[in-house]
């Protein structure tokens, strides 16, 4: 694959006062690729995701989507350029029904559908993630995995060029995990470009084409999943910190 990368992160840095959460991190994501972003707790993965989605502005460095700089843009601008995300702690919109939740993704994002078009897409996506028939269910009463499914459908509704999954599989029980992994696998086969921050190593091994490993804010390894995970520095970073 020699195509230009969809996303390129070039020496991104984020400081909070004296603390450097992300330091000089660079990597590319190609069209149709599923990249795993892994590392021990507090290594700066979620901060990295927040820099890409615009929740935070980088202190230095550049992030480009399809060759155009997005670093420093407001979150809603980045969303409209085609980046959508899920959240580490699932965030549904409790006063809207499932349909409304997904429509929120379709109406304002990359595609900006409206009316019946948006409604139809929402129904297709609800079916797609396994929530068929629950379009008018109150979302606050949904099970955890259903809320996660709903969030995924909302993120997909804008037809994103890049999908960011922030520990989307965390907190699922083993059977739910299997469902979740196969759902992501299907998305990959549809040709979605995805970055997933994840602690579930099985999922990383099954799903990812490549992975980037972060520790204490810096990138310590990048490459194919098998060789990266056997890298001695990666093992050192994980031992004692996190036994996932």
């Amino acid at each position: 694959m020699t195509a230009a990368p969809i996303l390129s992160v070039n020496r991104a840095q984020k400081k909070f006062g004296g603390l450097i959460a992300v330091n000089d991190v660079s990597f590319d994501v190609k069209q149709g690729e599923l990249l795993g972003l892994i590392g021990p707790n507090g290594s700066g993965k979620t901060t990295m995701l927040n820099l890409i989605s615009g929740a935070l502005k980088p202190t230095a460095g550049e992030i480009a989507l399809g060759g155009k700089a997005i670093s420093g843009l407001a979150a809603h601008h980045i969303a409209r350029r085609g980046v959508s995300r899920t959240f580490q702690l699932v965030r549904v919109l409790p006063s809207l029904d499932a349909e409304g939740n997904v429509m929120a993704g379709a109406v304002f994002g990359h595609r900006r559908l409206w009316g019946e078009e948006a409604r139809e897409l929402a129904h297709r996506l609800l079916e797609r993630v396994g929530l068929a028939g629950k379009a008018h269910a109150p979302v606050a009463a949904m099970t955890y995995i259903d809320q996660k499914r709903l969030e995924l459908a909302r993120a997909l509704a804008s037809d994103p060029r890049l999908l960011l999954l922030d520990e989307w599989l965390a907190g699922l029980n083993p059977s739910e995990l299997k469902i979740g992994i196969s759902l992501i696998d299907e998305l990959r086969h549809e040709g979605r470009t995805i970055i997933m921050v994840e602690h579930v190593m099985d999922a990383i091994r099954t799903l990812c084409d490549r992975c980037v490993v972060m520790s204490s804010g810096v990138k310590i390894a990048e490459g194919g999943v098998a060789e990266t995970l056997s890298d001695s520095e990666v093992i050192r970073a994980y031992l004692g910190d996190d036994d996932a």
Partner: peptide, 24 residues
């Protein structure tokens, strides 16, 4: 309208609103 729907989303969760592309 879109504006009304946007306000509903903002009223629920402003962070989500920003990330689905609403200029809150």
């Amino acid at each position: 309208s879109r504006l009304g729907f946007a306000m509903q989303v903002i009223g629920n969760d402003e962070t989500v609103a920003k990330h689905v592309g609403i200029d809150t």
